[in-house]
Structures are given as C-alpha cells and as structure tokens.
Simulated scan of single mutants.
Amino acid sequence: MAYDELRSLIAELQGNLERRQLDAAVPLLSKAKRTLLQLNTLIPSTSTPQPLLSLAREVLELGAITSIRQQDAAAFTRYYQQLQPFYDAERHLQSTLGSSAQIDLTTSQRSKITGLYLLLLLSMGNNTDFHTVLEGLVVEASLKGYNVEDDPYIKYPVELDRSLMEGSYDKVWRETKSERVPSEDFGLFSSILVGTIRSEIADCSEKAYPSLPISNAKNLLFLDSEGAVVEFAQARGWLLKDGRIYFPQQEQLQADQAQKDISSASATIIENAIGYARELETIV
C-alpha cells in the first residue's frame, strides 16, 4: 500500500513540476517525505528494500528540483546532502550484485543534481568544495572507463570554472547565455554566478579607476543597458555625473593620501623648525 501511495505521489509531483505548479508541489512533497519517514526510509540502510530505495531517492530528487525552482539554494543543498547516502547505496548494490540488482536507475537525476550543486559552489566562490566534489567524480569516472566531461551536466560547470581561473569573464557570460546551458534549472545558479562576477569586477573597478563612462561600465559589468548600469551604480553608492560614474571609495582613498601627505609635510616642517631652534640655542 505504501509503495503504491509513493508512486502516486511521485507521479503527481512530476506533473506539477512539469506544469510549474510549485504551490501544489510543496504539500505533495511534504506528504511524500512523511510517508518515507513512516517507512523509516529517509536514511537508507542495508535492510531497505531495493525498490523502496529507488522511490525514496526519486522523492528527494524532486525535492531538490522544487527547491531550485523556488530559488532556495539552502534547501537545495540540504536535499543534495540527503541524496548522497542513496547514491552511495545504489552504487554499492550495483558493484556487488551487478545486473541482478533490482534498481531503477532510469529515473535517477544524480548527474543533473550533482552538476547543479557544482554550479552552486562555483557561484558562491567555494572553490575548495567544488574541486573536492569534482575529484571524486573524476576518480569514479576513470574507474568506469569514461571521462567525467562526457556528461553535459558536469561538463558545463567544469568549463565555467576553467574560464573563471583564466579570468575570461566574457566567456563565462557568453556560456550562461548560450544554448549550451544543459537545462533551464541551471539558469538560477548561472545568474547568481554572473552576479558574483559582476560584484568582483565592481570591487576592482573602484580600486583601479577614479571614474568610468557609463557606456564603458555597461560592457565591463555585463549589463544589458545603461539604465541597468545606473541602477547598479546607485545600489553601490556610486556617484553619477555628466555620463560618468565616480567611485566614492577612490575619492576617499585619494583624500586620505592627500591628508597623509599634508601630515607628513607638516611633521617635516615642525621637525626642521625644532632643529633650527636648537641650533640657535647652541649659538647663544
């Protein structure tokens, strides 16, 4: 009975996600997870029946996709972590039982969810965890005799990482806008990544230039219009005047340096004056 209920809930969930009906998907997801809890299957064990293992993994994968479409990166991360024991259990069963293992891997979204997690780590600037996860995938792929980048879901974040390491931000921008994006679910984390890059460029610009023409800033920051540049500049507290952006931080640095120069010059004058007075006292 529980198996049939889970299959029915999974089918409903998939239908709601296909129709973008997230409000209807959320209560179904909660109900499916309660069912897994009652069956003691939210965490797999050696006693978990193989068919139930696949159904539980499907529920959590659908939860991960739902969280992405709700733009909830924290919830997606929790689902990713919950799924790892299920993926490990299925890999173990495959390796030990081979073709006799009754595991339905045709429904598995492991590749997609792992690629999305890599993209999330990249967008957060978490290079350490990104490369830790990737190294594990490379080892697993080599043991099975294939290249990890044969998988388009994994290849996409890996190529973005290479471009970032090269400083080719324009290439990253093009990749996030191209048809090579593996699926629309990658769009959310891609936009977060571009936002992170934009902030880094803005930080560097504040330190490198006293001002920039708005037209140049549009291309530099990968923004679609000069109006978008104005909004971005105002949000960062930049000054706009006569078609240019002026960086307050740079102006403050220049003012601080000028004050420092004045203070240094004043100290030198005072020191010279004291020395001169001492010389007069000696003469007298």
Rank of each mutant, 00 (worst) to 15 (best):
R198M: 14
I192G: 02
V172S: 10
T196F: 03
L193W: 00
L17K: 00
E279T: 03
R91M: 12
L83W: 01
Q109Y: 05
G167L: 05
Q84M: 08
T196H: 04
E175Y: 15
L6T: 08
I197K: 07
Y156Q: 07
L55K: 09
P49L: 07
L160A: 10
Q14N: 04
I65P: 11
Q38S: 09
V284H: 11
I197Q: 06
D203N: 14
S205M: 15
P182D: 03
E279I: 06
W238P: 12
G195T: 07
I113A: 02
L60E: 05
S111G: 09
L122R: 03
L39A: 04
L39V: 04
S263K: 12
N40Y: 07
E58W: 11
V229G: 06
T114C: 00
L60D: 05
V138F: 13
N219Y: 08
A273S: 12
E271Y: 03
E175C: 14
Q70G: 01
S191T: 15
K144V: 15
Y156V: 01
K177F: 09
A202V: 10
P248T: 02
L60F: 07
E135S: 15
E281R: 09
S111L: 13
Y79P: 08
E175T: 12
I192E: 02
K31F: 00
G63M: 01
A73S: 14
D242T: 14
A208H: 08
L60R: 02
N219A: 13
T46G: 08
T35Y: 04
G195F: 06
F130V: 13
V229W: 09
V230A: 04
L55Y: 01
Q254E: 13
N147R: 12
L240N: 06
E159C: 06
W173L: 11
L137K: 03
L97F: 04
A202G: 07
E18V: 06
E206N: 07
K177N: 11
